[in-house]
Amino acid sequence: MSDHHAPRSLIVTLYGAYGRGTPEHPAGPVPVAALIRLLGTVGVDPPSVRSAVSRLKRRGLLVAGRTAGGAAGYALSDAARQLLDDGDRRIYGRPADQAADRWLLAVFSVPEQERHKRHLLRSRLGRLGFGTAAPGVWIAPDHLYEETRHALERLELAEYVDLFRGAHAGFTPTCEAVARWWDLSALAELHRAFLDAHEPVLRRWARRRSTDPEEAYRDYLLALDSWRHLPYADPGLPAALLPADWPGVRAGEVFAALHARLRAAGAQYAAQRLAEG
């Protein structure tokens, strides 16, 4: 297992891909034994699984329970389920190319006695994909409006923030300003790292006619675990404002192809392991 694939991240990825059920029929607790088997397939040893589960439980993302057969297990908390649901649009569907002059500004002011909330605000806006236009002024593509509003309300931070929607009116050309608001070189490196790790996997599967469910599960889970962070680091900046050789386009294509090729077979393997209890 690559050092990049931390056990806690893989467990969240596993639940997001195969442990939620449907809105009408949410999945119940996943047996601990099944978690150990499923994470073992991607190289995580049992003590690391148990340790990661404990941390996720302390963070309020997993809740202990019993399966229908009485086995000990863990289910997603309501908050974790909401976070995963919110992430689906980002992870599985890159936004259509946005107009290059539509932006969302978040301007915030936090009293000094509540400076811990200032740190939380900066952290959350950064995780949503905002760039920094000026101290206390953060900027993102306009299509993040609803998600940003939802996140700030959920974290009870909305009272500290004013949101504005509009165009960049000057004076720096917008493509130059974008390169100042975001570290495009760092974002490009993230995309290239994804391609280096997973484009060879796609080429290997493209040469095969059959699909082994266990191999599909392993390769898909690792690809999803790598990919799901990228749409937050790179929030879908308008293509017209990015370098012509922007690697994010190819990275999105590779993940979409792996998703189409492997997800269903991987789900078959995961369902078998979960059924074993």
Score class of each variant (00 low, 15 high):
Met1Leu: 10
Asp3Arg: 10
His4Ile: 15
His4Met: 11
His5Cys: 08
Ser9Gln: 14
Ser9Pro: 00
Ser9Gly: 13
Ser9Phe: 10
Leu10Trp: 07
Ile11Gly: 09
Ile11His: 07
Val12Leu: 15
Leu14Met: 13
Gly16Gln: 14
Ala17Arg: 09
Ala17His: 07
Arg20Phe: 02
Arg20Val: 11
Ala27Arg: 13
Gly28Leu: 02
Pro29Trp: 05
Val30Lys: 03
Val32His: 04
Ala34Phe: 11
Ala34Cys: 09
Thr41Ala: 15
Thr41Ser: 10
Val42Glu: 13
Val53Phe: 06
Ser54Lys: 13
Leu56Cys: 08
Leu56Ala: 08
Leu61Ser: 07
Leu62Glu: 06
Arg66Asn: 04
Ala68Asn: 04
Ala68Ser: 12
Gly69Asn: 10
Gly70Asn: 01
Ala71Pro: 01
Tyr74His: 12
Ser77Glu: 00
Ser77Val: 06
Gln82Ala: 15
Leu83Met: 10
Leu84Cys: 07
Ile91Phe: 02
Gly93Arg: 13
Gly93Tyr: 00
Ala96Tyr: 04
Asp97Arg: 11
Ala99Leu: 01
Trp103Gln: 12
Trp103Tyr: 06
Trp103Asn: 11
Leu104Val: 10
Leu104Tyr: 09
Leu105Ser: 06
Val107Arg: 06
Val110Leu: 05
Glu112Val: 13
Gln113Pro: 05
His116Asn: 09
Arg118Leu: 13
His119Cys: 05
Arg122Ile: 10
Leu125Cys: 03
Phe130Asp: 01
Gly136Tyr: 02
Gly136His: 03
Pro141Ala: 06
Glu147His: 08
Glu156Phe: 06
Tyr160Lys: 00
Leu163Tyr: 12
Gly166Gln: 04
Gly166Pro: 11
Gly170Ser: 02
Thr174Ile: 11
Cys175Trp: 08
Cys175Lys: 14
Ala179Trp: 01
Ala179Gly: 14
Arg180Phe: 05
Trp181Glu: 09
Trp182Pro: 00
Trp182Asp: 06
Leu184Glu: 03
Ala186His: 01
Leu187Gly: 03
Ala188Asn: 00
Glu189Ile: 09
Arg192Met: 05
Arg192Ile: 07
Ala197Met: 01
Val201Leu: 06
Arg203Gly: 02
Arg203Glu: 11
Arg204Met: 06
Arg204Ala: 15
Trp205Leu: 04
Ala206Ser: 14
Arg209Leu: 07
Thr211Arg: 15
Asp212Gln: 09
Glu215Asp: 15
Leu221Pro: 07
Leu222Ile: 05
Ala223Trp: 01
Trp227Val: 01
Trp227Asp: 05
Pro231Asn: 05
Tyr232Asn: 13
Ala233Thr: 09
Trp246Gly: 04
Val249Phe: 02
Val249Ile: 04
Phe255Leu: 03
Leu258His: 04
His259Cys: 07
Ala260Asp: 13
Leu262Ile: 01
Arg263Lys: 14
Ala265Leu: 08
Tyr269Ser: 13
Leu274Asn: 10
Leu274Gly: 12
